[in-house]
Design a protein around this nucleic acid. Structure first.
Lengths: 329, 329
DNA sequence: GTGAAAGCGCTAACAG
DNA sequence: CTGTTAGCGCTTTCAC
């Protein structure tokens, strides 16, 4: 910047002002600076700028797995909203490694490298738990964070799963199973609760062993369905905690000669892109994936700007009826 | 840091050294500093550190679409390798918006916010084209960048597609179509070339209209297959430029009463997670997605460390035989 | 309008 | 081993 000042025959202060488009600089000097910048290809150093302004223009996103298509779309929404505001998105794939989350939160948020934090992980790094000044710079998406007063953008998982289960009950199913996600997970718990609520309301029993699963993966779906089909009285329908599980479940059913939906109805959750392209088309709950991300980013930006935000923004879901569900035969 | 120095009764230099674990500081002072840090919960300011050291510990990744499952896995590999080296990953979803790529490259790479750049986009932002000092900090993955001397990590797209096509020819197919990606894309060109090479080697014609497509999406696959099936002499097999296209193509064939593979063989490319779970299981080319990312990140890190790197690292692919291909009926 | 100068918080000579 | 000091490159009072 000193070089530019020399070249333009002005002070560094004037260069700084000119680059910022300040109105406190004469038209003539503006042009001299612009010309010098053009000649040299000068670009302001963002780090120095950040140090002086105490702003990095960066936000950290912690996500259990970028490769999960649901999370990937949430990231898309986050990136879009951040980009609009001139912010950059730092992504950390934490894979549920709490130690790593902790170290990152320290160096990134507390260390000033990022101004805010968006959590898709469902829990807050320990190192931030009692840092009051960090609290105002964190937003949770998809999964709420218990008892930390962290604002969040979510859907009503229990209600959505209740609706999915009720759809099956409405078709006439009575022996309905649930393939859940990983045990510790908040989404697992809520979706499971929604399943149980619907069954209870209909006065239907949920025998031991009719709730399986353990991961949000195709393989978990295959294994879960295999186990259900080995029962003396297998279910006639299965609600799955996400689409991957459902796709795996359908695969396992087909491999055992059970046609879907004729011999078994299957419902998913998320409405990932392939859900409409697999055979049979997957009946599922559509989440506003990208909106979740966008709203979370906007909420964080508002927080950073010192504005008030709603405590928990809950976005609507939509049940998508396709071909994987039918009345029991 | 001044506070810590005061609290520990030492100078800021000693605090800085102690925090860096320098051996030039007495055990006693190390403990005094550690204790003061514990009391205050002090964390070094990474921005100031970055300004002083001229290092941000950040790398920018430009990707056409995070939501694309292939790219998502490449990102996973990149993040893993960067994380190992203590670097952070900034992700920009560019969606082929060259203007945005340009602005970002300027503020991020030239502006010092990031030390390096990884391109999944297949082309170099204009603002970096003749910046010699930026050249040593860029790596391309998945798609090479023409004539810029930028090191890259790729697969041999043409050879892989040749193999996929040859597999179909080996099964006895003679009317083979290709559903390609978007027109301008480098991968599209290379894979198309591989297809043509295999057909030429076998002395098979590629009539006008037997090459379709236009996007790497399920929908493009559906439309492409619909168009092929409307021909007076439809193909008996189709090689697709990626798995999404293949999945869409299978869907369209099924909807028109053509069973896959009995009435139509289909081959994909990438081996995304659902490829093995759809029905029929997709025969495809497996790319080492995560390895591509990991190697690219390592290459960039080596570049930043001033080490010499190979010009173009080419990783092996593997043909995965599943159930979507069979001899023509 | 413009310039001089004081830092933002840190590290690395340099001198003890 | 330890402290003093000079910046890293920028923005912004404060005086003119």
């Amino acid at each position: 910047m000193a070089d530019i000042a020399r070249l333009a025959g002005v002070s560094v202060a004037t260069v700084s002002r000119a680059m910022a488009g300040s109105s406190l600089v004469s038209q003539e000097n503006k042009e001299r600076v612009a010309s010098a910048v053009r000649q040299t290809g000068y670009v302001v150093n963002q780090v120095a700028r950040g140090l002086r302004l105490q702003r990095s223009g960066l936000v950290l996103v912690m996500v259990p797995s970028i490769a999960n298509p649901f999370f990937a779309h949430v990231l898309l929404g986050i990136e879009e909203a951040l980009q609009e505001a001139g912010f950059g998105m730092l992504v950390a794939n934490t894979g549920d490694d709490h130690a790593r989350e902790d170290v990152l939160a320290r160096s990134m948020l507390t260390g000033g490298k990022t101004e805010g934090l968006i959590l898709l992980t469902g829990h807050c790094p320990d190192s931030l738990r009692d840092e009051p000044q960090a609290k105002g710079r964190i937003v949770a998406v998809s999964e709420e964070i218990a008892g930390q007063g962290i604002p969040s953008v979510t859907i009503d998982n229990a209600a959505a799963m209740r609706e999915a289960t009720a759809h099956l009950i409405g078709l006439g199913h009575r022996r309905i199973a649930h393939l859940a996600g990983p045990a510790g997970n908040g989404l697992t718990v809520q979706r499971l609760a929604g399943f149980h609520a619907a069954m209870r309301e209909a006065g239907l029993p949920v025998p031991r062993g009719m709730v399986g699963g353990g991961a949000f993966t195709i393989q978990a779906g295959e294994e879960g369905m295999s186990r259900l089909l080995a029962r003396q009285a297998p279910p006639t329908a299965v609600v799955c905690a996400n689409d991957e599980i459902a796709i795996g479940a359908i695969k396992a059913a087909r491999e055992r000669g059970i046609p879907v939906p004729a011999g078994m109805s299957v419902v998913g959750f998320d409405d990932i892109d392939v859900a409409r392209a697999v055979h049979p088309g997957l009946t599922t709950i559509r989440q506003p994936r990208q909106d979740l991300g966008r709203e979370a980013a906007r909420m964080l930006l508002a927080l950073l700007a010192g504005e008030a935000v709603v405590r928990n923004l809950c976005l609507p879901t939509q049940m998508i009826l396709r071909a994987s569900t039918a009345p029991p035969s």
